[in-house]
């Protein structure tokens, strides 16, 4: 899933300041799981903004809230048509993709990012999210015992650990495991150490022209029907 953090409250207040009627829009998928912009965070932010306005005594905003199942999907965006009829701006708590999907779908409507989209990862434990994939476009997890060197090694290097690893930790951060020690240990457990002895050539950054696009190819996933 995509992981994000809500922007600092002051920054959000600053962003919405030119606008009167603000729709705070949550996302029911990734942003809900990472506690950055689900229904609950939308309602908290709504209350906080209202309260701040009352306290300051000179606010001119009116707020409404809503949470879509997903902001990155045109199908769900249709549900917004009614909600935006009388708002001046959408403060999206969706990831960067959600924000852009709204901008593309509603050309006349300003939309603001309420979260900083950070990475693709997983919930490690309650309240802790860890990055796990950088979408490199050439997955090599089969060669590295299911541990991603591109994301989990600070340098993203492919041919084994640098000399900076100490106590199994990374030279960049003593609290972070060295990806290559993890890979080494798991390859050993799996009796696959020979995979670490192979030479891995430089990455092909051309597998990711920006912006990327994927077209569905007929029959690739059709289970043996291709000829």
């Amino acid at each position: 899933m995509i992981v994000a953090e809500q922007k600092p409250f002051e920054e959000i207040k600053q962003m919405i300041s030119p606008y009167g009627r603000v729709l705070i829009l949550g996302c029911g998928t990734c942003m809900t799981v990472c506690d950055a912009g689900g229904e609950r965070e939308v309602s908290f932010l709504h209350s906080a903004l209202r309260l701040a306005q009352t306290k300051s005594g000179n606010g001119t905003h009116s707020f409404s809230e809503y949470t879509l199942k997903r902001q990155c999907d045109p199908e769900f965006l249709d549900l917004l048509v009614d909600k935006i009829a009388d708002v001046d701006v959408v403060l999206s708590l969706g990831c960067g993709i959600g924000v852009q999907a709204i901008a593309e779908r509603f050309p006349d409507l300003p939309v603001l990012p309420g979260v900083n989209t950070s990475f693709m990862g997983m919930t490690k434990e309650s309240g802790v999210w860890d990055e796990r994939c950088a979408a490199c476009g050439d997955c090599r997890l089969d060669e590295t015992a299911g541990i991603c060197p591109i994301t989990r090694c600070t340098k993203g290097i492919l041919n084994g650990p640098c000399a900076g690893t100490k106590n199994g930790k990374c030279e960049a951060n003593k609290d972070m495991d060295c990806a290559w020690i993890l890979i080494y240990q798991r390859l050993e457990t799996l009796h696959q150490l020979e995979r670490m002895r192979r030479y891995y050539p430089p990455r092909n950054f051309r597998t990711i022209p920006r912006p990327k696009r994927i077209l569905r190819q007929a029959s690739i996933n059709a289970g043996g029907s291709d000829d």
């Binding site: 041919n159 100490k166 199994g168 150490l193 002895r197």
Partner: peptide, 12 residues
């Protein structure tokens, strides 16, 4: 402290 992975890299 984990010398074997360093030696694998040395050989590479």
């Amino acid at each position: 402290d984990f010398v074997e992975p360093q030696l694998i890299k040395f050989e590479k």
